[in-house]
Write a protein that binds this DNA or RNA. Structure first.
Lengths: 334, 334
DNA sequence: CTGTTAGCGCTTTCAA
DNA sequence: TTGAAAGCGCTAACAG
């Protein structure tokens, strides 16, 4: 492997000291124009490329990298986050280091370790585990941590989430306004924070509307499309079935649609799904939508802000949601 | 910001030399068990965390980072690639640095530069631009480059692609076998390599089947869902319309479905789409599918292999595709 | 089995 | 406006 020219080589070629070359290549002021030009020429002709590894080491402290630890990069939602994060970081000359935890808390821990070894200046996390005590120590040592999509249990860090409660309430109101009373709620695993928010608000909204016994049509545990489908099939096999379904996330929505497609009269059931998805438009599915890319961008923004000013107050950003009516949610009760 | 303990501090606390501490913490052999334990204890009690930045610099050459430059991380397909890459890299103790080019060649260039400054050991690229001459010099300097999804024009590097031609032929044969002759092809921008492969093979397969004038129903330029929809509407407004459509990628497939939904008799038209997508199953769309995560994994594998042995012959990996019949592609011609 | 001595390529005082 | 010298925290010979 061919050696790359170092700053020293460039300096020598330009007939200046190492420091002067450094000044020029970093765009620092106080260099004579002629000198500047000489250095620049030498650098380009030698094919010089600064070594960011060495630069970060010499500067001490943190590297110009930011880590993002997430459940599964292949997941539409997380990759939208990553995209927003990366874009914002780039504006600030930072680079993004991504790592997938597969939603496994143990793995989340080891990934955190690896990123810390790389001396990331900030860590953006979609917290999977419940115990982040290890991170606490790091925060004390000056590490910036930002939680995105859900809060980090027991940690007082900057956080970006969407308005889960408001979105849920809007969705339920949307259905109530069209005359539905027997509205089913189908949610993911109960230990998930987003589930809890949505579930709680569903029940509260129903109660506020004076609908008794909303729990009867309230289900959880639909972590996969298949599980959601089964749950919905079951709901419609029972007496006094729902006339509308609020699917608490996009996987549940798909499962619900599968179940309704095969059920007699399934076409008449109103459906509102939480989370937008690519073909919801084509399928005419009414959803509670929000901007995941923006969510990532805001998280990165917070990370940058805190790195710059560690003393600033901890911030909680709540992004809005909106109901996008596409047909499925506007059907009247049978 | 609190200072982190360095190796020297750990060594001192354990009463050994710096090098011995280094040996223990890197799991190198030839250390007495007692010493090992002493060092390990000191490290944990001090909360030591090795500095990968310093380690990489000391080792010289490349860092243990691999860069991935891609069109748009928010895109389902690219994020699947990223996911596969990241997983494979982790197996080898490497970390992934991602960057989105927005399919802009200029941006691709500057991102390349930034990653090179970080001294990435390899660069995995979905080449957007046509001119990679800058990269050529880097390859000569020992950089490993792997192209994924499409070849890098004019560069002789390891490459992972899918069998675009085989997939196209299989799709066309699938339709021909059901009696279709008036088969339309709707493709993306003609300058895209994948378009060219699919387009060419479509025409060749039609010719081989003895279908004259296949060009009549052959269209390109559908870079967005809307453009695809318009193109399909147009095809069906003309006399002697197709009885089947081969949509050359998933965006085109969606546009095609939108157009057919609104067209009289659109339900009878057979549709096969290139690229699988999340709800194809629910919608009953027959597609040419392949494994994007695996594609990423293979690319990372090649990157690792070449870094280990720069002299190995350049490899071209062609991943298989398969037709997944779900209904839309099995309709007979009217 | 363990330690000593040089750097890696850059930034950063502090002088000149 | 420019330069000299001292590290950043670690690895890598090479000795003992």
């Amino acid at each position: 492997m061919i050696r790359r020219p170092t700053l020293a080589v460039v300096a020598e070629a330009a007939g200046v000291s190492l420091k002067t070359a450094s000044r020029v290549l970093n765009g620092e002021p106080n260099v004579a124009a002629a000198t500047r030009e000489r250095v620049q020429d030498a650098a380009t002709s030698l094919g010089f490329r600064r070594n960011a590894v060495a630069a970060d080491l010499a500067r001490g402290g943190f590297s110009r990298l930011v880590g993002f630890i997430t459940g599964d990069l292949a997941n539409q939602f997380y990759s939208a986050l990553a995209s927003g994060i990366e874009r914002e970081l780039r504006e600030h000359g930072l680079q993004l280091l991504t790592a997938s935890s597969d939603e496994d808390p143990a793995r989340e821990g080891s990934l955190t370790g690896e990123l810390l070894e790389r001396r990331v200046g900030a860590l953006i996390v979609t917290p999977a585990g419940a115990d982040h005590s290890a991170l606490q120590a790091e925060i004390a040592a000056g590490l910036t941590v930002v939680a995105v999509d859900r809060p980090a249990a027991g940690m007082d860090v900057d956080t970006v989430v969407i308005d889960n409660r408001g979105g849920t309430r809007a969705a339920v109101d949307h259905l109530l306004a069209r005359g539905h009373r027997r509205i089913a709620f189908v949610g993911d695993e109960p230990h998930l924070w987003t589930y809890q928010e949505r579930s709680t608000e569903f029940l509260a909204t129903m109660r506020d509307a004076g609908v008794p016994d909303a729990e009867r049509l309230h289900r959880s545990g639909a972590h996969s499309v298949a599980a959601a489908r089964d749950l919905v099939v079951e709901l419609f096999a029972a007496p006094d079935p729902p006339t509308a379904v609020l699917a608490a996330n996009n996987r549940v929505t798909v499962g619900t649609l599968q179940a309704l497609r095969d059920a007699p009269g399934g076409d008449d059931v109103a459906v509102v799904g939480f989370d937008d998805f690519e073909l919801a438009d084509l399928l005419g599915i009414t959803v509670v939508a929000y901007d995941a890319v923006e969510m990532g961008r805001r998280a990165a923004e917070l990370a940058v802000a805190r790195s710059a000013d560690p003393a600033r107050p901890v911030e909680l950003v709540v992004l809005p949601t909106r109901v996008v009516a596409r047909g499925s949610g506007e059907r009247p009760p049978r």
